[in-house]
Write a protein that binds this DNA or RNA. Structure first.
Length: 761
DNA sequence: TTTAGCTCAATTTTT
DNA sequence: TTGAGCTAAA
């Protein structure tokens, strides 16, 4: 069955490690020289393959560990890989040189940039701006350019800039390529934004990659250094790489640029779900063209799901045209059918999910952590949270507001950021009047105007402006100058004390001096006490961080490390996400978006809200392209293949969207699943929920919701007063949608759909 | 300068 | 429906 095995002999004896792999995985592990692409289907053991490969390189091939690079997209994936590689190496007991570099694209690049700081535009440790910091700076740039933010939406400009960065397009190129007014203005802002970004000694997420790329591209010595350093490159989730990341990898690996071409990329185009964020699916589809003669390995054996789940997911994804044909198979058992349910409304949907969870908990030896609920949008989580809370089922929501994005945490983080990097105008402006010290909008505007005006002549920071305003009452007023002076003195005190203090000590000094907790206590609301709790948790995080990093150092070393440590902490807080904190072991039901679910697996999965318009979700139905639908379909595939044993696909008839009642059509993806894999179920939990029995998955035709109202025509209902009837016409839309029903008793009546929706069978 | 009330917009979000 | 951000009044 393995036609490749006949022609190929491993260069070295397989290690015991390699012996635990299947033929294909082993093939990928042993192919260490030259370009390699591994098409790894869902659940095919690609992490196992990757970690074995890294261990094999270090152990059997005697490659110095530090020459191995592995990049992932999440900290969680990186941490898992690091852990498993370490375990492999530990098991073998061999001493090895240094550590393999395993991290996210961003963390690897940030480390490189910090190492080469002298070759960057930065003169001090840089700050990383998240999306909201970035938006603030874009607004500032627009105001400096006197571009009206009503005619040009700053968020749209931000989108344009970030798209350019994903494609490694620089401001000059963007300007040259601009064909319309918006693109031209966006390019202007982009240029101005870049200037102020560097003046702030700051980077945004996209720039981390782009700057690293430019650094390697423009400096032969640095390029050669890292080509030598990273001799074996591994890229996880390759289908999610964007153009800039692709170029970065090429520069390290491509022969034409002096590289070694020892690059192993692992991906699955069927799981590419970040096209909307710049991921370029061509990177994986074209890899073979970019690296002629590259070796291709397909991992098609799935170790995760039942035959039924795999077959159903496969029949969905087969409808995509932009993919390499591959067929997943498994030795796992047939398993039970996929349970499909159509509920009355989102409340009923949540009730049913929780009831099923309780039932399965009672019947089998399952625990809360076996269950996951996936939805398309975060807004859908509320109903589930309500019912789970009421039923006392422990749960954990992934996503939503990050811990570090909470107002109180961000405020304090901004103080820390300003201490490390006072050039950071965004953070300075944020904390200038937090907590309130009487420096309001008018003052800020004056300072800002002065900042913009004086910056035309030289490189003056906002911090310089503040210091000047503290001494010069003519800039504002004598009262205001005093207040600004107080703030400047305060920050200077923190800067002076920083080297003497532990992180947590510095944190307490800040809190005490600015009286943050006191202000919150005075509020005395539930919300403010939650904020105080978060601040306490932040304290714990700081202490733990410090313990982890200062463990083996002498007192003297500790002193030197403090500034470095503070920047490292700030960096980590910006580069970490919610999912990193997800504990698989925690005994709770997990709730998350389909996007967050990638890379995870659960014995029981509820995929909810499967309704056309919501999932697949398309912003403008008229403009829904096949590509958009294909990405949604991949999302569906990702969601289904997370499930090991039991999969529920659910949707509702009536959903309140933005306060409006909307009548939903079942997701078109249902039609793509053969009926033999599906089991229709009657659900009636509690008396408020009507039964929504669905006769057949094919009963609902494919239709365009809202715009096309024919979806209801032909449906049957039983009206409590008029009896059995069929829809013969429908008109209107949204809340006002009406249906004309012809009753078997002979009458014909018109109803508002929302009043009779529950009578349909 | 602060704040109460209004308008407007609104997917997904590894970093 | 919810929230963020802005204008008008205290």
């Amino acid at each position: 069955m393995n036609d490749f095995a006949n022609t190929w002999a491993p260069p070295l004896q397989p290690t015991p490690l390699a012996a635990q792999l299947n033929d294909r995985q082993r093939e990928a592990v042993l192919h260490t020289e030259g370009p390699l692409i591994v098409l790894a289907g869902a659940g095919s053991g690609k992490t196992k393959m990757l970690t074995s490969r890294i261990a094999y390189l270090i152990e059997a091939m005697k490659v110095p560990a530090y020459q191995v690079l592995a990049v992932t997209f999440t900290n969680k994936a990186a941490a898992e890989m690091r852990e498993r590689v370490e375990k492999n190496l530990l098991a073998s007991g061999s001493g090895h040189l240094g550590q393999p570099e395993i991290g996210t694209f961003h963390s690897v690049c940030v480390r490189l940039l910090r190492r080469e700081l002298g070759r960057t535009p930065f003169t001090q440790p840089f700050t990383i701006y998240d999306d909201s910091d970035q938006l603030s700076l874009i607004k500032a740039a627009m105001s400096a350019l006197q571009i009206d933010d009503k005619s040009f939406n700053p968020k749209a400009v931000q989108g344009a800039i970030n798209r350019a960065k994903c494609d490694a397009v620089e401001p000059a190129e963007a300007r040259a390529a601009a064909t319309d007014v918006f693109a031209r203005q966006a390019a202007r802002v982009y240029e101005e934004y870049q200037k102020s970004l560097f003046a702030n000694q700051a980077l945004d997420f996209g720039e981390i990659i782009c700057m690293t790329y430019r650094l390697l591209r423009d400096h032969a010595d640095i390029r050669e250094k890292y080509q030598r350093r990273f001799r074996y490159i591994h890229v996880d989730e390759y289908q999610d790489t964007n153009r800039a990341q692709y170029l970065l990898l090429s520069i390290l690996a491509a022969k034409s640029l002096g590289g070694h071409e020892n690059i192993c990329v692992v991906g699955d185009e069927d799981q590419s779900i970040y096209k909307w964020r710049g991921a370029d699916i061509r990177n994986i589809l074209d890899f073979e063209r970019e690296y002629p003669g590259c070796h291709v390995v397909k991992l098609e054996q799935n170790y995760r799901s039942t035959k039924t789940i795999l077959a159903a997911a496969g029949s969905v994804i087969r409808n995509n045209l932009a993919r390499k044909e591959k067929t997943l198979w498994t030795e796992n058992e047939e398993g039970r059918k996929i349970i499909r349910a159509q509920l009355a409304d989102e409340r009923a949907e949540a009730e049913m999910v929780v009831a099923e969870i309780k039932q399965l908990l009672a019947g089998n030896d399952r625990s809360y952590s076996d269950f996951a609920i996936f939805y398309r949008t975060n807004a859908q989580s509320r109903q589930f949270e309500d019912v789970l809370r009421r039923e006392k089922v422990p749960y954990q929501v992934v996503g939503g507001l990050r811990f570090y994005d909470r107002k109180e945490i961000k405020d304090i983080l901004c103080y820390l950021k300003c201490i490390v990097n006072p050039s950071d105008s965004i953070s300075l402006k944020r904390i200038l009047n937090v907590p309130g010290r009487g420096i309001g909008k008018t003052t800020l505007e004056k300072l800002d105007q002065f900042y913009i005006d004086s910056n035309r002549t030289g490189s003056i920071t906002f911090w310089d402006v503040l210091q000047r305003a503290a001494l010069d009452p003519s800039l504002t007023s004598s009262g205001t100058a005093k207040k600004i002076s107080g703030f400047v003195q305060l920050l200077k005190k923190f800067m002076a004390d920083q080297p003497k203090l532990l992180l947590s000590e510095l944190y307490h000094e800040i809190l005490d001096e600015i009286g943050y907790v006191r202000v919150l206590r005075e509020e005395g609301t539930e919300e403010s006490s939650a904020r105080i709790e978060n601040l306490e948790e932040f304290d714990t995080i700081l202490q733990e961080f410090e313990e982890d990093h200062l463990e083996n150092l002498t007192e003297e070393q500790k002193g030197q490390k403090k500034l470095e440590l503070l920047s490292l902490f700030i960096e980590q807080s910006t580069l970490s996400s919610d999912i990193d904190q997800l504990e698989a072991s925690a005994s709770s039901v997990k709730l998350m978006t389909l996007h967050s679910s990638k890379g995870l697996e659960f014995p029981v999965v509820f995929l909810v809200g499967m309704e056309d318009g919501l999932f697949p979700s398309v912003r403008n139905w008229g403009e829904a392209t096949d590509e958009d639908i294909e990405e949604e379909r991949r999302l569906c595939y990702v969601g289904m293949t997370r499930s090991r044993e039991v999969l529920y696909l659910m949707g509702v008839v009536v959903r309140r969207i933005w306060g409006d009642v909307s009548y939903q059509e079942p997701s078109r993806f249902f039609q793509e699943i053969p009926e033999e894999y599906l089991e229709m179920r009657d659900f009636s939990y509690g008396n408020r929920v009507q039964e929504y029995r669905v006769g057949s998955s094919r009963q609902f035709g494919y239709s365009k919701p809202k715009a096309d109202l024919t979806g209801w025509v032909g449906r049957e209902m039983i009206h409590p007063e008029y009896g059995r009837g069929t829809v013969i016409a429908s008109e209107g839309g949204g809340t006002d949608q009406k249906v004309t029903i012809c009753f078997s008793r002979g009458s014909e009546k018109k109803f508002l759909l929302r009043y009779v929706a529950s009578f349909f069978s």
